[in-house]
Write a protein that binds this DNA or RNA. Structure first.
Lengths: 198, 198
DNA sequence: AAATTACTGAAATGAGCATTCCAGTTAATG
DNA sequence: CATTAACTGGAATGCTCATTTCAGTAATTT
């Protein structure tokens, strides 16, 4: 009640601010690195701080992870929203998919870890991303750029979850991402028997 | 060294045998059920046994999980090998994919849990499955049933990992599986611009 | 630069688990 | 059915961690 944890309001002292930043940075680094144990201890070592300091900076380990994930996912979500504003819905979708996969491949071999984390904000951010993707898909369908004759979830899950899965497969590479998008978009073309609309 | 753990040789006494079965069954049940904590305690309760008994029956919690996973995956691996012997490689692949997805959807909403488990046999079984799938794909490509002009990993990862992802998405259903396979196979058709070979 | 606190981190705490102990129970054997 | 050795399960043990404590340190303020 009266203990002024650093969480509410901004941390005041200069070193506290700096350490908060260090902890966040360390968490982000470890999140993008596979085969790490991601304990408070680990993060603290990576940050060059004591474990207590790391926890205190965010109040909780989960809060720290939340913040780190939000930081990592932010740009991607922003990009999705930009794609939503592009002119050609089909191209926008294709382009964003490529970015999504490459981004995850680059920053996210750690997704196994995310999978394990039951952290609220993380879930929220991922949902936000998924929703925007859903919109992108809807637009592409309305424009006739991709087929709309399947169970609605097919496309969403296919492009969302599957892209996620492929990105984290330990063989990820730009070619892989490109091939994936090609297959996806080919398979999603309206009227699979007809090459493309007139 | 001299302690006769139930692991080596077969357990002798009737109740030991029965309890081993109960523990295995309980583990399998919990594995196919999402949102379970899968502790020895949980398994024991599900089996109606004491925790110690459950552990002793297999020597280790991991060994028990290993056995349960092998049991669950076994039929699927067998099916993959059967598909490998079918006449039409394209149809065989398509058919098996459908089975794979539906099977996982039915018995494996728990895959989140498997993900978390770092259990050796589990890894082995999954590799075995993946390898057979790779063979199925190779055969289909050799037969010209699906395109072979992409980075080799594209197809494997796409069909293996992605099928896995889609199966565990909390929206899985037969239609979803069917739609997924349709899109995949359409996208994988040789020469995407040419509907099909003459 | 002296006084006042906010902050730090090594160590203590506590919670969740797998695994082991052991006193009591029960299947197997003659 | 009596004997005996194999089982059983509640409790004890021993990890791994996140979180809290607290004696000391160093920003900040005057």
């Amino acid at each position: 009640m009266s203990t002024p944890k650093a969480v509410e309001g901004q941390p005041r002292r200069a070193d506290a601010v700096r350490n908060r930043r260090l902890a966040l940075e360390a968490a982000k680094t470890l999140l993008t690195r596979p085969e790490t144990t991601l304990t408070v201890e680990t993060i603290a070592r990576q940050a060059g701080l004591g474990a207590a300091t790391v926890v205190r900076a965010f109040g909780t380990k989960d809060a720290l992870i939340d913040a780190a994930v939000a930081d990592l996912l932010g740009p991607l979500i922003r990009r999705a929203q930009e794609a939503l504003a592009e002119d050609d819905p089909g191209t926008a979708l294709r382009g964003f998919l490529l970015e999504l996969i490459n981004f995850q491949a680059a920053h996210w071999i750690m997704s196994e870890q995310l999978e394990g984390l039951r952290v609220p904000l993380t879930t929220l951010r991922r949902a936000e991303l998924r929703n925007t993707l859903r919109d992108l898909i809807g637009r592409a369908q309305d424009a006739g750029a991709i087929r709309a004759d399947l169970h609605p979830a097919v496309t969403t899950v296919l492009l969302g979850e599957a892209a996620y899965a492929i990105a984290r497969s330990n063989e990820s590479s730009p070619e892989l991402a490109a091939g994936f998008v090609t297959v996806m978009m080919d398979g999603l073309r309206p009227q699979p028997s007809a090459p493309h609309a007139p």
